Simulated assay, not measured.
Amino acid sequence: MELPVFYAPDIRPDDMRYTMNEDTSKYCIQVLRHENGDQVLLADGRGQKFTAEIADDNRKKCVLKILHTDTIPAREPALRIAISFTKNTSRIEWFLEKAAEIGIHTIIPLVSQRTEKEKIKAERLQNILVSAMLQSQQFYLPVLEAPQSFEQVVNNSKEAQQFIAHCLPEEKKTLQDTMQAGRDTLILIGPEGDFTPEEIKQALSLGFVPVSLGNTRLRTETAGMVAVTLMNAKQ
């Protein structure tokens, strides 16, 4: 049976004991009904995996004894996605959850000319990413960057591979046929209504390669999930 994983962002690699916060303690002891002597895993979100034993099953301040620590190798290459957030918050939250479960290094909220939602509730979205990391038994928390303008992203990108998925009727190869394995990658996913022709032209002039994600027109969050899936499948 797999051990449950709990998030411990403030734990240090040399800690011998760790006290869960009240919310996590309540979930571990009262909801999951763990007790003294049970083993659990802790993740700091930065690749450290702690195997621990419950020493004090207090439902408000559960104390753990750290048994041993492992460093999980970082996934390489780094896969990043810059995606315009939708006006419907639940749709982009769904995307974040699935992207974290599938595997993504960085998510950049992209503010393009047609983006409908520029402000984000960072704390709520961070909690969704944490939950997805724990659910999928991973030990690296995806990086959720602050919103960036289209110009910022395309001008500052230094990835080995840079793609832009758009819907204009021009010749494009599919992402799976264009992407090369083993190289850091960034893909841009536009808003409802797509990128403007001017934005596409700007990205292409800076070395971004136009790609297709399939034969159908996808919603923003669906396009994002397809992109993350295809990037992971290529590695």
Rank of each mutant, 00 (worst) to 15 (best):
R59F: 07
L206R: 15
T220F: 08
E159P: 01
E93Y: 04
T174R: 14
Q135E: 06
K121M: 08
K119A: 13
A233W: 11
A203I: 02
S25T: 09
G37A: 10
V211Q: 03
T220Q: 04
P210A: 09
E170Y: 02
A99P: 06
A223K: 05
I107K: 05
I120C: 01
Q30V: 10
L79E: 02
L64T: 00
P210Y: 08
E97V: 05
S131V: 07
F85G: 01
T216R: 15
N58I: 06
R183W: 04
M133D: 08
I200A: 13
M225W: 00
A8G: 11
R59S: 12
A122C: 03
Q135C: 09
I11Y: 08
R59M: 08
E116F: 02
F195T: 06
T106V: 02
E199A: 06
D177E: 15
L141F: 12
I128G: 10
Q180K: 15
I102V: 14
L32D: 03
K87M: 04
Q30T: 15
D184L: 01
M1P: 12
G103H: 02
C167V: 09
L134T: 12
A100Q: 04
E93M: 00
K119T: 15
N232P: 09
V130T: 12
G193S: 04
V154N: 10
G214E: 07
E2W: 03
A132N: 11
E170S: 11
M1D: 10
T174E: 14
I200V: 15
Y27D: 08
L79F: 10
K201Y: 07
F85Y: 12
S212N: 08
V63C: 03
A8L: 04
D194P: 06
A82R: 05
E151C: 02
G224Y: 11
A181P: 01
P9M: 06
L144E: 06
I81V: 14
Q176Y: 07
R46T: 12
F139D: 12
A100N: 05
G182W: 05
E22I: 12
I189Y: 05
Q176I: 14
P210N: 11
D184E: 11
A122Y: 13
R217M: 07
H34T: 03
D56G: 00
I104K: 11
G193R: 09
A160F: 00
Y18A: 00
M20Y: 02
Q162E: 09
V130D: 10
Q235H: 00
S90Q: 15
Q126K: 15
I187E: 05
V143Y: 06
V143D: 11
I29P: 02
A181Q: 15
E145K: 12
Q148C: 10
K201C: 09
K87R: 13
Q202E: 14
K49P: 03
Q137I: 00
P169R: 06
C28K: 05
P77G: 04
S112D: 03
K61T: 14
T19A: 06
